[in-house]
Design a protein around this nucleic acid. Structure first.
Lengths: 142, 142
DNA sequence: CGTTGATAGTTACATTCTCAACTAATACCC
DNA sequence: GGGTATTAGTTGAGAATGTAACTATCAACG
């Protein structure tokens, strides 16, 4: 069958299957969209970021980032202060509440992924990683 | 950084990057959604399929398949006839017009993917394929 | 038969995404 | 400086998606 050997199809399908468990965690259990979750992760690792910087890192379109920031701000998980030198720019950083939320969610996410990959041998994991690295190099993500 | 080594993130990102070119083809150039495109492919390879069969093969939720079928039928690319024995069931099959459309789009899709992967050596491709197969076996898709 | 429960597929509603237009602030350049 | 073009970020309209409810048909069991 055509699609079965077709790279974009294979990747999309595997991405969906792999994301099912983890999505359930941030969506259902913590009421976050994927952009919100990713913004949270990036802010947790960066002290403070502007919307543009988040667009690059997430990565996502600016409208998604903008709405994710607004939603997380409404939750009280982050605050924004406008840059003194360039008043178009706002620096977002997690509040204590946001940091705690991340620290609660992160291990749940890691556990879910580890549970999913539990049946894989170290050799399998190695092969998987190498395969993905091929593409990451291709896209300059490596 | 946490996400960079995180499998669901890596897969989703690679899937998105890989799909960009090909999506542009079926979306912009041929005005098809992804479910529509996948239904088209599956019907092109199967003579005739019910909505349920398509749900399994695409794979997709029945609402997506239902809408894709309705849309492709409106385009005149497929017809449906209700099963004689079970009148809940409808068998969809491509019209000549639908078949021709698929034959037009398919090589464009293959070319786009091949262009994307052109920089990869045979060893790279081998590694990529093996990595994906690890996951496909995990999910029983192999 | 007739009631109850399952199944195939569609429809409705709420959420999310995409894309374009918009506002506000800054940079460029004569 | 004053006009024009860029840039940061937000908002709005329409498409696509997810979830649940719905219709129609069939199966099972008394």
């Amino acid at each position: 069958m055509f699609l079965k050997g077709y790279l974009p199809y294979r990747l999309n399908l595997l991405a969906e299957l792999t994301s099912e468990n983890t999505q359930a965690i941030y969506r259902r259990r913590h009421d976050l969209t994927r952009p919100e979750w990713r913004v949270l992760v990036n802010l947790a690792e960066a002290e403070s970021l502007t919307a543009s910087e988040l667009c690059e890192r997430v990565p996502a379109h600016k409208t998604k980032v903008s709405r994710a920031l607004a939603s997380l701000e409404a939750k009280g998980w982050l605050t924004r202060r406008t840059d003194a030198a360039d008043r178009r720019v706002a620096h977002a950083s997690l509040t204590l509440k946001g940091r705690r939320a991340f620290n609660r969610i992160r291990p749940e996410m890691e556990q879910a992924t580890e549970a999913l990959l539990a049946p894989l041998t170290p050799e399998d994991r190695q092969k998987l990683d190498e395969g993905l690295k091929v593409l990451e190099r291709l896209f300059g993500q490596a």
